[in-house]
């Protein structure tokens, strides 16, 4: 998209639960639009942000659109790095099995389907954060 072919490392930091406020949904909208710019994109889910990825969301009773299936489309937008902070998940009594299974197809490995979610410790996430050029938090 950009004439100079600048590639920056973009990290989207999600620290808020879905539905209680609109941040999670509107953050996802930025990620989807941003994918067209072919930057080096990562997503991080920390704190209550991990609740965005849980399985089995059913919003019929609150009259709000369930946007959780959209996370499963992230792979089609070539988003391959979805970091979930281990400490946050554990503090909430959750494991990876409680989260949706998010995958992408690896172009460099004969389009093999791979897990997009990577469970990382706070310190590992800190290292990843330090490598970023642009950090968008919502």
């Amino acid at each position: 998209m950009s004439d100079e072919q600048v590639t920056k490392k973009f990290l989207y930091v999600n620290r808020k639960a879905p539905y209680g406020t609109i941040y999670a949904l509107e953050s996802l909208e930025v990620v989807l639009i941003g994918a067209a710019f072919e930057q080096d994109v990562s997503l991080a889910f920390i704190g209550d942000g991990v609740y965005q990825l849980t399985k089995g969301q059913d919003t019929k009773g609150i009259g709000v659109k369930n946007f959780s299936p959209t996370y499963r489309a992230l792979g089609e937008y070539d988003i391959q790095k979805i970091y979930v902070e281990k400490e946050s998940l554990e503090a909430r009594g959750l494991t990876l099995d409680d989260l949706q299974h998010l995958v992408y197809e690896d172009e460099d490995d004969d389009w093999a389907e791979k897990d997009a979610i990577k469970l990382v410790s706070a310190k590992e996430l800190g290292e990843i954060m330090e490598q970023q050029d642009v950090v968008l938090s919502f």
Partner: peptide, 20 residues
């Protein structure tokens, strides 16, 4: 559009976020 935000991230030297 939101592309303008991404573009700001690409073009600016620093992106600073203010929110809740």
């Amino acid at each position: 559009g939101l592309g303008q935000l991404i573009e700001a991230g690409i073009k600016a030297d620093r992106l600073v976020v203010f929110g809740d």
